[in-house]
């Protein structure tokens, strides 16, 4: 049973974590480049310089002393997102949608007192959410108002789009839809829904929720398959340009679709997870091998995107 399970995974071209590390992230992502993406502030600055749209930074807290001034600094902004600069896996992110009676309202409607917000920010500074527990910065930034196309298929929180980019070629993508189980977070292991995306057309394929294949959103009941992601070509372009921006060979680019501002790059992950294969019900390995074989023939952005749409589309 073991051996056959093993062989079937191999045949499906599933990329395992050992192979991802040994053959992709370790050789293609030089260690000196990792700080560029580990610190979201650096990534944001880099993207701004490269002309890649990112959520606007409202404020940043670096030292404990600044925590109390937080409310003052944020007062012009009715809604915002607090996130650790060096967080991973969505940990430590709090989305504030508004205020009421001097308190802050979270996505799920719960109210946070001012001191609770301050404590959370202090925790971020202390390094609770950062890799290795190093002291961290807390970023307060623009809260994305997601595009109405996702309204029917997400439950609180912001759905985001993850695109794996290998050597500048987008190879696989999924949209992560928050559910009631994920507390508005767009992380698959926290209970969000992952729907694979046809690279050629930008339409969602089947979706996966907690290792189960589903066709409808468990909270809203609306179909999650065959939804056209607006601005898909622009998203592919942003993702592909992130490769030129960071120099990382193998990365996961997280994008959001804002109602007014269009696609925005949220963050880049140098060790993107493998669940995207479940959402797409396809293995990454054959696609990565295709890129390895052809990338010397793909000199510029246009050719890489064209290669992606020609090779990794599902509908023919």
């Amino acid at each position: 049973m073991f051996v056959s399970g093993w062989r079937r995974l191999r045949e499906a071209g599933v990329l395992g974590i050992n192979r991802r590390n040994a053959e992709f992230t370790l050789p293609y992502n030089p260690r000196r480049l990792l700080p560029l993406v580990d610190d979201k502030l650096l990534t944001k600055r880099l993207a701004e310089k490269a002309g890649i749209p990112v959520p606007e930074l409202y404020a940043m807290v670096e030292i404990e002393h600044q925590v109390r001034d937080l409310h003052e600094v944020l007062s012009p902004h009715p809604d915002f997102v607090i996130k650790p600069a060096r967080g991973s896996g969505g940990d430590g992110i709090v989305v504030i949608t508004g205020r009421s009676r001097g308190m802050y309202r979270k996505v799920n409607g719960a109210l946070l007192r001012r001191d609770q917000i301050e404590h959370h920010v202090s925790n971020i500074l202390g390094g609770i959410f950062s890799l290795g527990g190093y002291p961290d910065k807390a970023l307060m930034e623009y809260r994305v108002e997601f595009d109405p196309v996702f309204e029917a298929i997400s439950y609180q929180g912001v759905p985001d789009i993850r695109i794996i980019v290998f050597l500048g070629v987008p190879v696989m993508a999924m949209v992560r839809l928050p559910s009631s189980a994920s507390d508005g977070k767009a992380n698959l292991h926290q209970g969000a829904i992952g729907a694979g995306i046809d690279m050629a057309s930008g339409r969602t394929l089947t979706a996966v929720w907690r290792n189960e294949v589903i066709t409808e959103h468990p909270d809203t009941g609306n179909p999650v398959s065959d939804v056209l992601i607006p601005h898909w070509p622009r998203m592919l372009e942003i993702a592909a340009r992130c490769h030129d921006m960071t120099g990382l060979g193998y990365q996961g680019v997280d994008l959001v679709l804002d109602r007014g501002r269009g696609p925005m790059m949220l963050e880049i992950n140098a060790r993107p997870g493998l669940n995207i294969q479940i959402a797409n019900r396809a293995g990454l390995l054959p696609r990565l091998r295709r890129v390895q074989e052809h990338h010397h023939l793909l000199p510029d952005l246009e050719s890489r995107i064209a290669f992606c749409r020609a090779e990794f589309g599902v509908s023919r």
Binding site: F2, G5, W6, R8, L9, R10, E11, A12, V14, G16, I17, N18, R19, N21, A22, E23, V208, N211, E212, V213, L274, Q277, I278, R281, A282, G283
Partner: peptide
């Protein structure tokens, strides 16, 4: 082991959904 790039046993379970449709 530092160069072992095969699957982990847990991945056989994790990606079970994929191997079913793996044809």
């Amino acid at each position: 082991m530092g160069r072992y790039s095969g699957y982990r046993l847990s991945e056989l379970y994790r990606f079970k959904a994929l191997s079913k449709d793996g044809r």
